[in-house]
Amino acid sequence: MKNKPVNEMKLYISAIPENEALARACISRFVSAADPTVAELADIRCALSEAVTNCVVHAYKNTEGEIYINARLYGDRRLTLTVADKGCGIPDVALAMTPLYTTDKENERSGMGFAIMQSFSDKIRVRSKLGAGTKVFMEKYLR
């Protein structure tokens, strides 16, 4: 079946800074089975790290919360990543995705998180609802 993934991973992790590395370690292992290039693996690790960091820093603002990560690998070497939170939501998604735009200058956020996700994946979609949460969907084709 075309739309059935050959492998899938679902992760629920606490929104704490230490879990940024945990998420990267899990996705590395998951994607390694598809023998990605070094650059592809680095792109994926970085894109996921950005999404998870956004949950910790922005969605839950360093308070308790849960991050849901879903990774799917398809037979046509397509990888999809979904990162969802039940945090505060983004008032203006287009603005949030503008390179160098940040709401958190004092903590030295570079404002490049979404720009990196965009640059390191083939497709990105962001859905957000104020007070309900944010879902980031990314897709990347492995060579």
Binding site: R24, R45, S49, E50, T53, E108, R109, S110, M112, G113
Partner: peptide, 13 residues
Amino acid sequence: SFMDSSGLGLIMG
């Protein structure tokens, strides 16, 4: 061994 936009923030700061 790895850097993302948070490392970039550290450099910019």
